[in-house]
Each structure stands twice: as structure tokens, then as C-alpha cells.
Simulated scan of single mutants.
Amino acid sequence: MVQLVRDLMTTDPVVLPPDTPVREAARAMRDRDIGDVLVVDGDRLCGIVTDRDLVVRAMADRDDLSDCRVRDVCSDHVVTADMTETLDTAIARMRENAVRRIPVVDAGRPVGVFSLGDAAVERDPNSVLGQVSAAPGNT
């Protein structure tokens, strides 16, 4: 049976406007136990911010984060998957673009996030990545 991205994606992604302070994005990640937030301008997906982006693009270069916004640190070349795509298609796109997670869209609107961890839990649950991804967070 062919599996679709919508079957494994994490639904109800956190979406924030571009002018959101990075500290608010970090709090959302902590509070929801997630590693990314989507940046949207109206209904248009315009970026993704990961926990790594916060460290590498915000904290590493700034002593004061008070004026740092998600638009300043987001990846603006966003690789997406349609919710009706097969897992194989989405995984291949992730591999081609060297990304670990991708926003899932429906008619261009963000509806979820699909990660390598999601794929590993489903496809190879006994692998290290599958086991780590299935384990409860250590927050």
C-alpha cells in the first residue's frame, strides 16, 4: 500500500509572521516540544526556522536578541511536500535538498511538517534514528 505524506506528517504546525521575535519562536519550540516553526506572511509560506537556525544564525552572531526576528534567521528557500505526495517522493526531495524536515502544504497553505524522524519511525523503527525519534523528549 502506498503511503502518503499526510499519513505521517505532524499536523497543526506552529506558524508565525516574519516579524515575530526569535525568542517567541524558541518558546514555541520549547512549549510544543518541536524543532521548527513555519514563517508565513498571510497564508503564504515564506520560510522555516529550526532550532539549529536559532543557534547558528541568531545566537552565534548576536549578543542581544531583542531586535532579532524570525525573518532574519529563517531559511527562505523552502522545500515543501504536498500532503497527497507519496512518502518516497517526499523523502527523495529531502535527500536532493539535504533537509531533515519539510513543510507540508495543501493548495499552498501549510498544514503540517514531515521529518526524517517521521520516516524512520515508520520505515525503519529499529534503526537508531527510528528509536531516537520515537522516544519521548528529554525536556
Rank of each mutant, 00 (worst) to 15 (best):
P13C: 08
P103A: 13
A90I: 13
R109K: 10
R30E: 11
R69W: 02
M9D: 03
P13R: 14
E122D: 12
R6L: 13
G130M: 06
I48T: 01
M29H: 10
D53I: 07
L4S: 04
D72G: 04
D51R: 03
V73S: 10
R32V: 04
G117V: 10
D67Q: 14
V2Q: 06
A119W: 01
R62L: 02
L65R: 11
A60V: 00
R27P: 02
V39N: 07
D82K: 05
D12S: 13
D67T: 14
S115F: 01
A119E: 10
R100T: 05
R95Y: 08
A58V: 04
G130Y: 11
Q131L: 10
D31P: 09
T11K: 14
V132F: 15
R30Q: 09
M59D: 08
L45E: 02
G35E: 13
M94E: 08
A28D: 06
R71K: 13
R69C: 06
L54D: 09
M9Y: 00
A98W: 07
L129C: 12
R27K: 08
P21K: 14
V73F: 11
C74K: 11
G47S: 10
A120M: 12
V56C: 06
V73M: 02
T84H: 14
E122R: 03
V73D: 01
L8N: 07
T84M: 12
V14M: 12
V40K: 00
L54N: 06
I91Q: 13
C68M: 12
I102S: 09
S115N: 12
D51E: 12
A81H: 04
R93Y: 02
R62T: 02
R6S: 13
E96V: 00
V113T: 08
R30L: 03
S115P: 07
A119M: 14
A119C: 06
G130K: 12
L54T: 09
P13E: 04
Q131K: 15
R32A: 09
R23N: 07
M83Y: 13
S75W: 13
V39L: 06
S66L: 04
M94T: 01
N97P: 01
D43K: 05
R101M: 05
M29C: 08
G117E: 13
L4Q: 06
A119T: 05
G130C: 08
M59R: 11
T50K: 02
G137E: 15
D41W: 05
M29P: 09
T50E: 00
I91N: 10
T50F: 00
A81F: 08
A107C: 11
D82T: 07
P136M: 02
V37N: 11
A90L: 10
Q131H: 13
M94F: 01
V55I: 04
T50P: 00
R123T: 05
T50A: 00
G108Y: 05
A120H: 10
V73C: 03
R62C: 06
G108T: 04
C74F: 11
D88T: 01
D36C: 14
R100M: 07
R100G: 14
D31W: 12
L129F: 12
V55T: 09
V132S: 12
D12E: 15
F114C: 05
R6I: 10
A60I: 00
V40F: 02
V128I: 08
R44T: 10
T139D: 03
D118V: 06
L116R: 07
R57K: 09
V56E: 01
C74R: 07
D67K: 15
A135L: 05
V111K: 03
G130P: 11
V15H: 02
T89L: 14
